[in-house]
């Protein structure tokens, strides 16, 4: 393709799409179950080929898929200390209780790097057949050592993919499984959606975040609630999606690590208190007031299940050593 052709395509693209068309994100009411890549040019798997996706495709023709590998580091922590199954952490929660974790896993999706002019550039995840599927990745900090008995020996602290070269100074991702993948047939889902400990079959979805404790059995199971069928067998939406939108800036892929801090998540909770008649901790039940402060620290308004910008305290950026 000649350079003038590229100019023409880009011109057409901008003319058709206009500004602000860079976020091509499946919403919670889209009800789509299209398979990733079923449609040629559908890079984000939302069942539509947008002009952005076409432009990206044209860029790939011209630049020979000029995406560069990118590895986004995560770290599981409890305060300043590294997360470890069975370690007794003290001073956790509003009243400074003891905390002995027995699970710590979460899904992230729709990972984007941010340019200084607020453009979001999608990270195309490596389809590794284990931790990453389409635009979903599982971060897993537990290693099945006691008391993390429900877990897996394998751990994963990195999201790997490719991204167009550029100057990035921030990152944005969703904490959770995208709607399009959340309500399919779990019994035949490929990894990392095949882990039964992350199934949430009762709510026809997955646990987005799973934290358990050995002491007092305090659980945090985050997931969509109030889901309903639009037609037989097809979930049309969920009253409370409970997906957090995380924006971290400044963030450097090369130099930084994204810290997921359970002490920060639990900072406003009392590990020894539980609303009567509800499971200990928070299993996203809208009647469970224990969820209020937890979801706030994840950046989600508990009443609506919608993300709220600037609320979250669970994730922070630290320099990587």
């Amino acid at each position: 393709m000649e350079p003038w052709m590229r100019t023409l395509v880009l011109f057409l693209a901008v003319a058709v799409s206009g500004p602000g068309a860079y976020v091509a994100q499946a919403t919670d009411t889209s009800g789509r179950f299209d398979r990733y890549g079923q449609c040629a040019g559908d890079r984000n798997g939302d069942g539509q080929v947008t002009v952005d996706e076409l432009v990206a495709g044209v860029n790939n023709i011209l630049e020979g898929c000029g995406h560069v590998p990118v590895a986004i580091r995560f770290a599981g922590r409890v305060g300043q200390e590294p997360f470890q199954c069975g370690t007794t952490y003290s001073g956790v929660g509003r009243n400074g209780g003891e905390f002995v974790p027995s699970d710590f896993r979460f899904y992230v999706s729709n990972v984007r790097l941010l340019t200084s002019d607020d453009r979001e550039v999608a990270v195309l995840l490596d389809q590794d057949g284990v931790w990453q599927l389409e635009d979903v990745a599982l971060l897993d900090f537990e290693n099945k050592t006691s008391p993390c008995v429900n877990g897996t020996v394998q751990t994963n602290e990195t999201v790997r993919g490719r991204v167009a070269p550029g100057a990035y100074n921030g990152i944005r991702f969703v904490l959770g499984v995208p709607f399009r993948r959340n309500h399919g047939d779990a019994s035949v889902a490929p990894p990392p959606l095949s882990l039964t400990s992350m199934f949430w079959s009762w709510q026809a979805g997955y646990k987005f975040l799973r934290v358990d404790t050995a002491l007092d059995a305090y659980h945090i199971h985050l997931g969509s609630t109030g889901c309903y069928f639009a037609q037989p067998g097809v979930v049309g939406g969920c009253a409370r999606p409970n997906r957090a939108e995380v924006i971290l800036r400044p963030f450097s892929v090369e130099d930084d690590v994204i810290v997921a801090d359970l002490a920060a998540l639990l900072a406003d909770s009392d590990l020894n208190e539980n609303k009567e008649g509800t499971p200990p901790g928070c299993m996203s039940d809208p009647g469970d007031d224990d969820c209020n402060v937890l979801l706030r620290n994840l950046g989600v308004d508990f009443a609506s299940g919608q993300p709220v910008a600037g609320l979250q305290k669970f994730f922070r950026v630290e320099p990587h050593h």
Binding site: S187, T196, W202, Y228, G233, V235
Partner: peptide, 20 residues
Amino acid sequence: ANPLLDSLERQALVPMFNER
């Protein structure tokens, strides 16, 4: 009382893997 459990295949996952 769960309208989301619409098939025996889907339902079987609940007793097998439920934790609550």
